[in-house]
Design a protein around this nucleic acid. Structure first.
Lengths: 341, 341
DNA sequence: TGGTATTTTGCAATCGTTTGCATTTTCGTA
DNA sequence: TACGAAAATGCAAACGATTGCAAAATACCA
């Protein structure tokens, strides 16, 4: 366990009385080296708690064993960065990457302003990119897609694109959410969110699908476009009630944070949930279960999504072509909606 | 903008008709090179969107310009990883690091099981460590502190330690929270949290301080030790009310998530907040403002804390010794507590 | 114009691993 | 005992950027 200066392969070689190359091979468990020598060297390395110099290794092998995760944030609103859902994905990606022997370099679209491919890949900072969120415009992402850089994007997988996307079936999710409210007897359902935002568009279409299937007339004034933050939702819903009264009896929110913001506005005005207004969210963050009433929502399986993203990225490292794929979603019914009778 | 293969300094040198060393110096804006040549090369590099090979650079300079951020999680509970507060810190650290030209390598104590100093520093993966959270035992952290590895820890700065700690004045925070409840007329105040957990111990002491200063007798049965998760808080408070009735009229929670869990339990049993029971949290996460009633809490300034941590780390890179420092906290009064008359 | 002082550029070694190929050792068998 | 095959090890050339020192180019001054 004693170690003062940094040990190199060479030092270790001298200690073991063999050549550097033998040590290198032994440590990577190369069968070219006699089993006996191999373990002897491995033990020695362990004792001196040696660890390979990744800088040198990367230079030689041209591989970093690092993946850059870029949070593709839309604007400078605090909520975006603090959104529990995004951060949950980061945690899951970290897990998935580590289990495959990769480290996670974290970044976001404000910091990495330059050409991403350049900054992360050409510079040998990482072997590939995972971009979280398509935002309103995927300009930067397209830019990367044009190069041959390994990349996977979290977004709307149903959308046509030049890069592989992993994400939930947003349209189905939007439909399920709306359908559930309709089943509970809601007649006038608000869509609360930003239809322009790529991942939200599908949810909005699903909302329309459900209305249509249930022969409910789609009223565009029930589409409430707001920033995807709890604050915006809170403010908008407050204002709506104040100016137009309680003209709705259901809300399909494009995210849980938005739903929670809306619910706070309702509660403040003593609107009953779900008696007067039913609310459905999207994501299933921790707070959905913890709020009171607890929030019915569409659960996105970030854990398996993360696995898939990592697998697809690694497949690209091996030169394979990959395409988009859809992750299952699930309606989680809780207290914020009336259930079918 | 055209670039097919990876460009090296050498390639660029040929294009510019100068030597590699000149290009290297020009790109780092070294005044040794004539201003004219410098810009000429910089422009050329820009055009070919060249970017330095960090692997080679790191090998040569023995610096990585990367900092590893380790989430020091206590156990495998989901909440720990998903805790909005921890993730907020990561976001803030990312910001602070980037603004100083450092990249952030994310890890957590489950993944990095080996000797941290070894894995991150000896291997040249990073130049220093920022550990978020001291947990119940700081064994791993001590291990690193014993080596001369640059490190800063988010934790309780008032605690004696062999490494620099940045954190809030937890004791004062605990006192302010309790004091506020007492001022509001609470007589029987629960402490909800884990007094063994390093950062929470101070808050617990502060709770005791306030009681003493106000001549309220400290009753150990009012100390409710639980895991620091919203779920544990919810379950414990539910159980308490069920078994012993509403024998308390105030709760000092050791974190906002714990407070929110407790509040849910209260609401489910139609206990008025703050009329019957006042609740104070700790952290000031987004949800504190968003819950209904909104949560009175002790705000931790993660943004300035992150700045400080990064500064202290960089100071260590320059060979300076640094010590712990305390970040200001602030009582944010909201609806979950009665205010002084 | 010559010579020195100053600015600007280039040479070449170095950082620590990896790996194709050459070399040595070991082993089995005639 | 010898000889070729197989197994185990070692040699040395990369990977690409940085930097102390030497060399070349330019400036300055008498």
């Amino acid at each position: 366990m004693k170690s003062n200066k940094k040990l190199t392969l060479n030092d270790l070689a001298k200690l073991a009385g063999v050549s550097t190359s033998t040590v290198s091979r032994a440590l990577s468990d190369n069968p070219l080296i006699k089993k006996e020598t191999r373990v002897r060297i491995q033990v020695l390395a362990e004792q001196h708690n040696f660890s390979i110099n990744t800088a040198a290794s990367r230079l030689r092998t041209q591989k970093t064993k690092v993946v850059a995760v870029i949070l593709n944030l839309i604007d400078h609103t605090e909520q975006s960065i603090g959104d529990p859902f995004l951060l949950k994905i980061v945690a899951d990606l970290n897990q998935a990457l580590n289990s495959k022997g990769y480290d996670l370099l974290l970044s976001n679209s404000f910091m990495a302003t330059d050409n991403w491919a350049n900054y992360f890949i050409n510079s040998q900072r990482a072997d590939g990119l995972i971009v979280v969120g398509q935002g309103k415009s995927d300009e930067k992402v397209q830019e990367v897609a044009a190069t041959a850089v390994p990349m996977v994007v979290w977004g709307d997988p149903l959308r046509e694109s030049s890069y592989p996307i992993v994400g939930s079936n947003n349209r189905l999710g939007g439909e399920l959410a709306t359908e559930h409210l309709l089943q509970g007897g809601c007649k006038n359902i608000l869509f609360l969110g930003d239809p322009e935002h790529m991942e939200m568009t599908g949810r909005y279409l699903g909302y329309q699908d459900a209305l249509e299937k249930n022969a409910v007339i789609f009223d565009p004034t029930f589409t409430v476009a707001i920033d995807i933050t709890s604050r915006a939702a809170y403010e908008k819903v407050s204002e709506l009630i104040l100016s137009r009264g309680l003209f709705f009896d259901g809300i399909v929110a494009c995210s849980d944070m938005v739903a929670l913001g809306a619910m706070r506005a309702l509660k403040e005005r003593y609107v009953g949930i779900p008696s007067d207004v039913g609310v459905v969210g999207f994501d299933d963050i921790l707070m959905a279960e913890l709020s009171y009433p607890s929030l019915t929502t569409i659960k996105q399986n970030t854990q398996s999504a993360s696995q898939i993203m990592v697998d697809k990225l690694i497949a690209q490292f091996d030169g394979q072509e990959v395409n988009s794929s859809v992750v299952d979603i699930e309606l989680v019914t809780r207290q914020s909606t009336k259930h079918k009778v």
